Simulated scan of single mutants.
Amino acid sequence: MRETQRETVQVSPLSDDLAFLDIVTEWDMVTVYQDWKTSIVVPPTFQPGSLPRVVAVCNQKGGAGKTVTTLELAMALVARGLRVRIIDADPQRASMSVWLRFFRPEGVAADGLKNLKDLFFDDDLSLQDITYATPYEGLHLVPSFPDLDDVESKQPPGTDTNLQFHLRKADDDIDVTLIDCGPKLGPLTVSALVAAHDVIIPVQAASGLDAVGAAALDATLATVRKRLNPDLRVAAVVLTDFSRSSLARKIGGSFARKYPDAAILPARTNVRIGDAQLAKEPLRLFEPTATTVLDYDCAAGVLFGRGRS
């Protein structure tokens, strides 16, 4: 692993007296709308993930909030003392590797930097070789560039199990690996699902199309479970860009019925996310008291517990 800690900063925990959402055991579709309260749903059957953990953040629809969800969960986890690796499995130019700064090893030119694509084509490369430190203590990134699309088009041998093989082989002390998947259910996303213990599904709370499109993801999950990863579970649905509305309530209710053992996690809307991306800062540092930040912090606690004691 490429460690460069001389410039890193520690991510601080949030204060307990901020306006966190309440936690309940079921999504409320009974209370009249005027009295309905937005809450985090943690079913009695939900179990936090044990460590170490590999989590795929996945939805086949673009603009669902996968990258925001991945980064803000990662920042909340490192604030709890966990060591986190983000794998950017999205070949788009506007991906995690553009938003999250990372340290390039000394003497390595930008065009010579090894990235996720190389892991699929170079048998001599290890996951540690392409895991780079970021400016935040405990947070590391496996970057990708647009040529990651070569994995989709050429599908080198072993693509489906590549990430699983390298994650199992990795000799490091990473507690949580978050895989930020691209907006299609191709070989890269399948490789992420095969490697993962859990899936987190970000869904736009204001988009009925996101709810309809979840059927395609369900089919892919069923295929992966049947053939390669029978223990894969949907751990959570994150309702991104959430604002209180009857549509958001219906969408939350539909996913609570679809995944009765999963946490349903509203992430309230924030107009500064775009500004944070341009500044190349996580929202948690750009606007630390934003309700979105609070929601992802609470989500991290629900999904992984308190972190290291």
Score class of each variant (00 low, 15 high):
residue 261 D to H: 11
residue 119 L to D: 01
residue 159 T to Y: 04
residue 112 G to A: 13
residue 26 E to V: 04
residue 47 Q to T: 13
residue 230 P to Q: 13
residue 70 T to C: 15
residue 149 D to V: 14
residue 123 D to R: 06
residue 27 W to M: 09
residue 190 V to E: 15
residue 154 K to H: 12
residue 201 I to V: 15
residue 248 A to I: 09
residue 33 Y to K: 03
residue 111 D to K: 12
residue 89 A to S: 14
residue 223 T to G: 08
residue 205 A to C: 09
residue 263 A to M: 10
residue 256 A to F: 08
residue 49 G to K: 06
residue 174 I to G: 01
residue 225 R to T: 08
residue 10 Q to R: 15
residue 68 V to N: 07
residue 220 T to D: 06
residue 36 W to Q: 04
residue 139 L to H: 04
residue 178 L to C: 08
residue 80 R to C: 00
residue 72 E to C: 05
residue 286 F to D: 13
residue 222 A to E: 15
residue 144 S to Y: 09
residue 78 V to N: 03
residue 1 M to D: 07
residue 64 A to S: 15
residue 200 I to A: 01
residue 308 R to F: 04
residue 202 P to F: 05
residue 102 F to H: 07
residue 50 S to E: 14
residue 38 T to I: 11
residue 38 T to C: 12
residue 63 G to E: 11
residue 234 V to F: 07
residue 206 A to G: 14
residue 286 F to Q: 13
residue 301 G to A: 10
residue 205 A to V: 08
residue 140 H to G: 00
residue 179 I to M: 11
residue 76 A to N: 05
residue 160 D to E: 13
residue 46 F to S: 02
residue 188 L to Q: 09
residue 227 R to Q: 15
residue 250 K to M: 14
residue 140 H to M: 00
residue 35 D to F: 13
residue 55 V to Q: 05
residue 159 T to N: 06
residue 65 G to T: 04
residue 285 L to E: 07
residue 61 K to W: 10
residue 301 G to R: 09
residue 195 A to H: 01
residue 161 T to P: 00
residue 50 S to Y: 06
residue 197 H to F: 03
residue 109 A to Y: 10
residue 276 A to R: 08
residue 173 D to Y: 10
residue 128 Q to K: 10
residue 39 S to G: 00
residue 22 D to K: 15
residue 158 G to V: 00
residue 158 G to L: 01
residue 82 L to C: 00
residue 165 F to Q: 15
residue 221 L to E: 12
residue 200 I to S: 02
residue 159 T to E: 06
residue 259 Y to W: 11
residue 221 L to M: 15
residue 163 L to N: 12
residue 20 F to E: 01
residue 211 A to Y: 12
residue 188 L to S: 05
residue 37 K to F: 05
residue 290 A to Y: 01
residue 28 D to H: 08
residue 296 Y to H: 12
residue 101 R to V: 02
residue 287 E to T: 12
residue 24 V to T: 08
residue 180 D to C: 07
residue 300 A to N: 06
residue 122 D to Y: 04
residue 74 A to D: 07
residue 243 S to H: 13
residue 304 F to S: 00
residue 264 I to G: 00
residue 106 E to K: 14
residue 53 R to Y: 07
residue 118 D to P: 01
residue 268 R to W: 03
residue 253 G to N: 11
residue 75 M to S: 04
residue 230 P to Y: 10
residue 174 I to F: 04
residue 134 T to Q: 10
residue 92 Q to H: 14
residue 278 L to M: 14
residue 36 W to D: 00
residue 131 T to D: 02
residue 145 F to N: 09
residue 183 P to R: 06
residue 116 L to S: 02
residue 152 E to K: 11
residue 58 C to G: 08
residue 94 A to D: 11
residue 290 A to K: 03
residue 72 E to W: 02
residue 295 D to W: 11
residue 27 W to R: 09
residue 182 G to T: 11
residue 51 L to N: 03
residue 259 Y to G: 07
residue 186 G to N: 14
residue 103 F to S: 14
residue 18 L to A: 01
residue 56 A to K: 11
residue 215 A to H: 07
residue 73 L to F: 08
